[in-house]
């Protein structure tokens, strides 16, 4: 399952959100770093990472016996598309209004 609602659900947990935030800020991290950073048992962290993997929010790759986690940029892009900035909304609307008014004036002048 990697639908958008799965992603939102996965990020809805504060520990998982903190993991993703840390990966966004610091880039790729070995799993051991993630374990040491949260006040939680390694198996609990592993379960959270599994949820994030399954929601396709994070990638995990194995390198020299280390598991390295990183955020999938495609997922972040997908999430940010669902965000509507109010300033963007009104500025975009004004662009369209401007085009409409120009069109109407041109038509009147013809």
């Amino acid at each position: 399952m990697d639908t958008l609602s799965t992603k939102f659900a996965a990020l809805g947990d504060s520990t998982r959100f903190a993991i993703v935030e840390r990966l966004l800020n610091e880039g790729e991290l070995p799993v051991s770093d993630l374990h040491s950073n949260f006040d939680m048992s390694p198996p609990a962290i592993s379960r959270h990472l599994k949820v994030l993997r399954e929601a396709k929010i994070v990638n995990c790759k194995v390198k020299a016996q280390q598991r390295l986690y990183s955020v999938r940029q495609e997922s972040m892009a997908e999430i940010s598309k669902w965000v509507m900035d109010h300033k963007e909304f009104w500025m975009g609307s004004m662009d369209r209004l401007d085009a409409l008014i120009r069109k109407e004036i041109n038509e009147e002048n013809e």
């Binding site: 609602s5 939102f8 959100f17 966004l24 940010s80």
Partner: peptide, 25 residues
């Protein structure tokens, strides 16, 4: 506005989280 951004099609409480994500991005 509670936040500058609105989450379309999702429950509230998400705005602050997405603000944080955007800052991190």
């Amino acid at each position: 506005l509670e936040n500058e951004q609105a989450i379309i099609g999702h429950e509230k409480g998400w705005n602050a989280n997405l603000d944080k994500l955007k800052i991190a991005l």
